[in-house]
Design a protein around this nucleic acid. Structure first.
Lengths: 151, 151
DNA sequence: TATAATTCGGACAAAAAACTCCCTTTGGAG
DNA sequence: CTCCAAAGGGAGTTTTTTGTCCGAATTATA
């Protein structure tokens, strides 16, 4: 039902970066603090997103990570193909390696329309839009900190 | 996107058992052979399904596993709540621990209708129906054996 | 009663995912 | 030029998931 933690961190981080001023690098540490996520682990994930061209990174003072130019419209599908692997969309719900219209598992024809809804949603949501949603203040990007939970 | 292997094996095994004559125990080894799945691991999963009342088990000669009486109509949702845990339906797509209409992640209101489709499907598919689908011969329960793949 | 075939249960092993540590490289600022 | 703060990168650790092994308990049958 859910995505891997790696994917969740990646999406959260990208949305957060998209909310910041374009061209001004955001620190890994600041993202990790904001998302309440392990910084060293997040660093690996961001590196990976750089390698795949979603982010630019800058070293040294005033370093950090920015959305690569033109990547504001990147949709969640594109992100998840990187973090979950290229077979992400191909998976059969019962786990069969080979499952298609021609040679289908027992769920196949019921599952396909539902899967289409999922993929459609992931394709339609892009970072810009999600960032705006967060900026309105109506939506949260990460879990409430433990302090706030205790209130 | 996908379920844990444990869940996939559980569902496949339950469907297979449901295709067999009710009341006649099915051997773990036969199920494992049929599904092409590690037998010792599957045994643990079946034990667990017994503990939760979906299956009956019989030891000794003529032993094996049967669907518990009245469990033919068990739906996939019920199975997955056992194998994936009780929070299965509650999960937020971005991984937030607390995510509801009141305090939502950026995807929440877009995700909820899609999630409803998924849960609806899982609720509507029961073992009896899936078993019948397999019995028609039109649908596969497990991967083709390596031998057949090579053809 | 002895035997063989099965599940049960616990401990163990391997693989994958999540996470940490530490040192190197880079680049801005004093 | 030196220092400091950042990302880069590799190796290692921990945790979870998946899978294995083996001996004990159970039960039909010869």
């Amino acid at each position: 039902m859910v995505l891997s933690r790696t994917s969740q961190y990646a999406v959260q981080a990208l949305i957060y970066i998209a909310t910041q001023r374009p061209g001004e690098p955001v620190l890994n540490r600041d993202i990790a603090d904001r998302l309440n996520v392990p910084a060293a682990y997040l660093a690996k994930i961001l590196q990976n997103l750089c390698k795949h061209g979603l982010l630019d990174s800058f070293r040294g003072r005033l370093g950090g990570f920015c959305l690569r130019e033109g990547m504001q419209r990147t949709n969640l599908m594109q992100v998840l193909l990187l973090t979950e692997g290229p077979d992400f969309t191909k998976s059969c719900i019962l786990g069969l390696k080979e499952c298609s219209d021609d040679s289908a598992c027992a769920m196949h024809f019921k599952w396909i329309p539902v899967k289409k809804k999922i993929l459609g949603l992931l394709n339609e949501m892009n970072l810009e839009e999600l960032a705006r949603a967060v900026q309105t203040g109506k939506y949260r990007l990460a879990d409430l900190p433990a302090a706030a939970m205790a209130e």
